[in-house]
Simulated assay, not measured.
Amino acid sequence: MAKRKDARVTVILECNGCIRTGVKKVSTGISRYITQKNRHNTPNQLELRKFCPSCSNHTIHREIKK
Rank of each mutant, 00 (worst) to 15 (best):
50 K>P: 06
57 N>R: 00
33 Y>H: 08
3 K>T: 14
57 N>Y: 07
21 T>Y: 13
65 K>Q: 13
51 F>V: 06
47 E>G: 04
5 K>I: 09
2 A>D: 09
30 I>R: 04
6 D>G: 15
55 C>N: 06
64 I>L: 05
57 N>S: 07
10 T>A: 12
15 C>Y: 07
61 H>F: 15
18 C>K: 04
37 K>G: 05
66 K>W: 11
26 V>N: 08
44 N>T: 14
1 M>H: 13
36 Q>D: 10
3 K>M: 13
65 K>V: 15
46 L>A: 01
44 N>I: 12
37 K>A: 07
61 H>I: 05
61 H>T: 03
6 D>H: 08
15 C>I: 09
49 R>F: 09
46 L>Y: 02
16 N>E: 15
18 C>T: 07
30 I>P: 04
15 C>A: 09
41 N>V: 13
47 E>M: 10
48 L>N: 07
64 I>E: 00
38 N>H: 11
33 Y>E: 10
58 H>V: 12
19 I>A: 06
26 V>T: 10
55 C>K: 03
31 S>A: 13
48 L>S: 09
56 S>G: 13
63 E>N: 00
11 V>P: 04
19 I>S: 08
66 K>E: 14
16 N>D: 15
2 A>C: 11
5 K>P: 10
11 V>N: 04
2 A>L: 14
19 I>M: 04
13 L>T: 00
48 L>F: 11
48 L>Y: 09
28 T>Q: 06
36 Q>F: 05
14 E>K: 02
47 E>L: 06
49 R>A: 04
14 E>I: 01
18 C>D: 15
39 R>C: 12
13 L>G: 00
49 R>I: 05
45 Q>R: 03
17 G>F: 13
40 H>E: 15
23 V>H: 04
23 V>T: 10
42 T>A: 12
16 N>V: 14
44 N>D: 15
51 F>A: 02
36 Q>A: 08
59 T>I: 09
7 A>C: 09
13 L>R: 02
52 C>P: 12
22 G>M: 08
15 C>D: 15
21 T>G: 10
10 T>N: 13
40 H>P: 06
55 C>T: 12
34 I>F: 05
29 G>T: 01
54 S>P: 07
28 T>V: 09
51 F>Q: 05
4 R>M: 03
32 R>V: 15
10 T>R: 15
21 T>C: 07
64 I>R: 05
1 M>P: 14
60 I>F: 04
13 L>W: 03
